[in-house]
């Protein structure tokens, strides 16, 4: 397969499939709740509908509110192009560094929180406050869990890490497992899932992400929703390619790439199912219990690095 085609595949993979990942997770949750559930394609229809609706913007909002959806979505688009997905061939020294990805995520969060404060609604402000609290306390666990893999692999480039983790000796399994648990905790926090946030609620006492985007409508709401879906699939794919890196194509052969896409889709679907199962079996935590969980992730990361010989 031509390298340009592979790059196009890499770039469109996240935005094209992220609504499906959300739809699939919702469907599995519906089954747990004994509901029939909407088709996994429903999020695509929702986005299409929102893009064709007129928009109402608050009279208190400034250009920050208008511009934020583009930044928040653009950041996920950029990250989607940088993370390891189907092939280890696409190693670029330009921007695949794990700190770039962590800090780009922070850039998106920064703008999302600003947008939440811009309309002067009580919901938006509290959503931003909670989001920044969760995001700030997540940072340590996320960096340390990824750093464990980075130190084992000997490179900070995530595609390089994915290629190296598959060949690690068995002695490192404890470190990788601990880092994996820390990553899952950080992932749930970053993607606004249980037990941190309830993605299906509009109840003001519990919401974080939904509170910040409450004032959005039309195309900007579509961008915000789509960006959240992208972030979800980005973290799912990072989890599967970094901690279960088997099946990535090492060559440019069309067959190898097709197989690797199929394996990645399967792994991502399984992780979606796991998250849906987790969300159906645990309760949301009180907001002041969340930092305990996030500090646990940081401690796990510390131990994981300590265990590296």
């Amino acid at each position: 397969m031509h390298i340009t085609l592979l790059w196009i595949l890499q770039i469109v993979f996240i935005p094209a499939l992220s609504p499906f990942a959300i739809g699939l997770t919702r469907l599995i949750k519906a089954k747990f709740q004994n509901r029939k559930g909407a088709s996994p394609l429903q999020p695509y229809r929702d986005l299409w509908k929102l893009f064709h609706k007129d928009e109402v913007v608050s009279e208190d909002a400034s250009w920050i509110f208008a511009f934020a959806p583009y930044v928040v979505f653009g950041v996920t688009l950029a990250i989607g192009a940088m993370i390891p997905l189907v092939s280890t061939v696409l190693v670029t020294g330009l921007a695949g560094d794990f700190l770039v990805i962590v800090y780009l995520v922070a850039l998106g969060t920064f703008w999302l929180a600003l947008a939440g404060m811009d309309t002067g609604s009580a919901f938006g402000g509290f959503g931003s406050s909670r989001e920044m609290m969760v995001a700030a306390f997540t940072e340590g666990g996320l960096v340390l869990s990824l750093l464990t893999l980075v130190l084992l692999a000997g490179t900070t480039n995530l595609t390089g890490v994915a290629a190296a983790v598959a060949g690690l000796p068995f002695a490192d399994v404890a470190s990788v497992t601990l880092a994996g648990v820390a990553f899952v905790i950080a992932m749930l926090a970053e993607t606004s899932r249980y037990p941190f946030d309830n993605p299906a609620t509009h109840l003001e006492l519990t919401m974080i992400h939904e509170a910040m985007i409450l004032e959005y409508s039309g195309k900007r709401l579509a961008l915000m929703e789509w960006a959240a879906a992208n972030k979800y699939l980005i973290f799912i794919s990072l989890g599967t390619t970094l901690f279960f890196p088997w099946g990535m194509a090492h060559t440019l052969g069309t067959g190898a790439i097709a197989l690797s896409v199929a394996i990645l889709l399967l792994k991502d679907a399984l992780l979606c199912a796991a998250i849906a199962t987790l969300e159906s079996s645990i309760a949301k935590l009180r907001i002041f219990r969340l930092p305990d969980l996030l500090f646990t992730a940081c401690i796990l990361g510390l131990i994981a690095i300590g265990l590296i010989a």
Partner: peptide, 25 residues
């Protein structure tokens, strides 16, 4: 490293607060 990572996150939180409180709403 953990301290530096947390510092980055908390600084972002602080400047969302500062910018939001001064310039927004």
């Amino acid at each position: 490293i953990a301290a530096l990572a947390y510092t980055g996150g908390l600084a972002a939180a602080c400047f969302v607060k500062a910018f939001g409180a001064i310039f927004l709403a």
